[in-house]
Design a protein around this nucleic acid. Sequence first.
DNA 1: GCATGTCAAGAGCATTGCTCGCATTTGTTT
DNA 2: AAACAAATGCGAGCAATGCTCTTGACATGC
Lengths: 241, 241
Amino acid sequence: MDLPLVAAAKQSTPRERARAQTVADIIRLGRQHLALHGAAGLSLRAVARDLGVVSSAVYRYVESRDELLTLLLIDAYGELGDDVDAAVDALPEGDYRGRFLALGRAVRQWALREPARYALLFGSPVPGYQAPAERTTEPGTRVIYRMVGIFDAAYRAGALAAEVAPAVVVPPALAANLAAVRAELGVAVPEPALARGVLVWTSVFGAVSFEVFGQYGADTFAARDELFEHQLEVLLGVVGL
Amino acid sequence: MDLPLVAAAKQSTPRERARAQTVADIIRLGRQHLALHGAAGLSLRAVARDLGVVSSAVYRYVESRDELLTLLLIDAYGELGDDVDAAVDALPEGDYRGRFLALGRAVRQWALREPARYALLFGSPVPGYQAPAERTTEPGTRVIYRMVGIFDAAYRAGALAAEVAPAVVVPPALAANLAAVRAELGVAVPEPALARGVLVWTSVFGAVSFEVFGQYGADTFAARDELFEHQLEVLLGVVGL
DNA sequence: GCATGTCAAGAGCATTGCTCGCATTTGTTT
DNA sequence: AAACAAATGCGAGCAATGCTCTTGACATGC
């Protein structure tokens, strides 16, 4: 039990370094198998084969198949978060629209490049697997936090429309939830805009999921880039940016 | 090969009736297992056990595990389509907003009631499984066709706003795709509104997927009914209804 | 140099999808 | 009613899977 795993980089004895390297190799191979066969087809035995080791040996490094899934989950959230951060940071802080577009494009690009990993993060839950919240919540909230940050900065700068027509009332129970979010994240955006932000959030991922999961059909939408760009533009209007 | 399957209801000899009944039982049991263990955990052997029959016997009725998945896919699309149709038809033809809301609610209700089947339809593709388009396209397009029908009826009645602020240009390549859709479905809705309709479509399912797949986190949004209602209201504004 | 702890190996258990040969049931036809 | 042929069920078997446990080899650090 209590495997050091990837966290063992400090004060590295040769053993720990070798171990960390092996775990990293396992994650890398797991990523490949994930891409080829999906989360359900992820096989520790196959990873062991590729690692050139007998199947039982990998259990020295990874507690179980679920543990490997968790590692891959964190790994994928991290890479997506890094991509999004890089794309957003490439634009000036005051370019709120540009930053939102960059965020959306970065999510889509990563999803199209890594469909299996995207499916692991945002697709159907893997049956029988429950991600350990204490390890996945932080990396899993990076993108939405980043998006809310853009909206918040725009609001504070007066760049976010106060009212978007048609006005839609926010029911009290929802307003209470949103107030809690506001307090937790320390953002200034008022509830109505925050509520619209939630819709924008779900819509961006809805659009990406439809494309990645093949819901559009084979040849209905050939102009997928343009479709997504258009969707982002409309969503900008929805939130009042 | 060439199993008659469920199609054998006409001119029923006793054999064919018994066979159809057995296939129906297999689908019913498959549905239960799907709900309990997910698509990846769907096991023909387990179905055989529940059917009180040896594992190899089910192959007399269902070609393979993938074939059973296809049957369950069609079954689920059918039920969702029926639910949506019933909900929409319960409102007068001219109540376009009400019909759209009813459609959205029906999708969400069905998804929450049948999360595993919803995941099969709209979640990550099952790895190694490709749905046979010639059997699943028709049932799989019922909901979106119904939604487009509502928009089209509203447009023809002059109830759909011609322009929704802020105006977003539809790039030519996308416009061409949309024109093809218009022609194929025989709808009158102009391209800009149709494009917004696509976003609304993806957004509805994006919102439902987030909720069903647990992307919202455990306790951030307690007022989920209100959240979804709000999202539908905003989406009505997006499409100009 | 030796005790300690780490590691890989291999056998084993229960599970899966699927195939095949053989027996039995069942509906129809003579 | 008897005979036939098709449909059906059975059970063994193959190649996988995840995971456990025991055994023996090895390296580390005192």
